[in-house]
Amino acid sequence: MRFALAPKAVADGFRLEALETIDSTNAYALAQARAGDPGKLWVVSKNQQSGRGRRGRTWHSPPGNLAATLLVVADFELKLASTLGFVAGLALADALDAVAPQAAISVGPDGGSNFAAAGSGAFSSKAAAGNRFELKWPNDVLASGAKLAGILLESTMLDKNHFAVAIGIGINVAAYPDDLPYPATSLHDLGSKCDAETLFEALSEAWAAYARLWNKGQGLAAIRNCWLERAAGIGGEVAVRVDNRVIRGIFETIDEECHFIIREPDGNVIRIAAGDVHFGAVASASAV
């Protein structure tokens, strides 16, 4: 099976470049932007060898997984670029719901949904109410409390008035690395037979829908509301590492600009623009 865009994505002017092997889909997309590509370009591969994660980390991607990057040449304010990660998370969660219905959440001994993979801590009651795939601020997709996918936004200035954003999405379809410091899973481990090509086509369709809703930032309030419906950890104990500081408290919400809002034990409310989030008491201790 070959990679293909969904009909709605084609109708909205998106293009596709599928590569057998690639170092980094993000790096390739940004290079295309600097060479004059107008954007709305998806770059995809099932064999990414030098993927990148947040804060300079490596994103391991065993063959058979999906590495997809959407190149956006921006005609909106730079400060809105980071909110595209929330659009990407929603699009991916919808795509997963569409093509991996058999990737069910495990059921605990009490008959309830089990979202607490080892070391992952407590998750929200909304999640337990039925979200199969959850969104972890700012850029992960979880299944049964384990990381299934990560999203990385990178940008480059094209001239003094224009910039490009590479929205990289890496999904553990066939396998996940076994040397990670946190719980992880793959679609195949969850019982799904979905392949990377099927998932990408669904992702391209879902992105087109959410991009119209986002509408260059004018629909950010609606995106925020949709994201909160899928959010992991709301109302639970969290620890957030910000540079060399660890902030502990209760995850209350995300604000109108999609910053993380945490209430410390003394009642102080902190607004966080970037950081690493850990759920639950056990995970909080490991964040130090």
Rank of each mutant, 00 (worst) to 15 (best):
L180N: 06
L180D: 01
L180V: 07
L180C: 09
L180P: 00
L180A: 10
L180W: 06
P181K: 03
P181T: 04
Y182V: 09
Y182D: 00
Y182H: 05
Y182I: 09
Y182T: 03
P183C: 00
P183T: 00
A184D: 04
A184I: 00
T185P: 03
T185F: 05
L187A: 03
L187V: 02
H188N: 13
H188Y: 12
H188W: 14
H188F: 12
H188M: 12
H188Q: 15
H188D: 07
H188V: 10
D189R: 13
D189F: 10
D189I: 00
L190P: 00
L190I: 02
L190R: 11
L190M: 11
L190N: 01
L190E: 07
G191D: 06
G191Y: 06
G191Q: 07
G191I: 01
S192M: 05
S192L: 06
K193F: 14
K193G: 15
K193T: 14
K193C: 13
K193I: 11
C194Q: 07
C194V: 15
C194R: 03
C194I: 11
C194H: 03
D195A: 12
D195W: 11
D195N: 15
D195V: 13
D195F: 10
D195H: 13
D195R: 13
A196S: 15
E197V: 15
E197H: 15
E197K: 15
E197I: 13
E197L: 13
E197C: 15
E197G: 15
E197P: 14
T198K: 06
T198M: 07
T198R: 09
L199G: 01
F200G: 08
F200C: 12
F200M: 13
F200W: 09
F200E: 08
E201Q: 14
E201F: 06
E201N: 08
E201M: 12
A202T: 03
L203K: 04
L203R: 05
S204V: 08
S204T: 13
S204L: 09
S204Q: 08
S204E: 08
S204A: 10
S204Y: 05
E205I: 05
E205A: 13
E205H: 11
E205W: 05
A206M: 07
A206Y: 03
A206P: 02
A206K: 08
W207G: 05
W207F: 14
W207S: 07
W207K: 07
A208G: 11
A208Q: 09
A208E: 06
A208Y: 10
A208N: 09
A208D: 08
A209E: 13
A209T: 12
A209K: 12
A209H: 12
A209Q: 12
Y210I: 09
Y210Q: 14
Y210P: 02
Y210T: 08
A211M: 10
A211H: 13
R212E: 09
R212V: 07
L213K: 11
L213A: 09
L213M: 11
W214T: 00
W214K: 02
W214V: 00
W214A: 03
W214P: 02
N215D: 14
K216E: 14
K216A: 15
K216G: 09
K216C: 10
G217Q: 11
G217S: 11
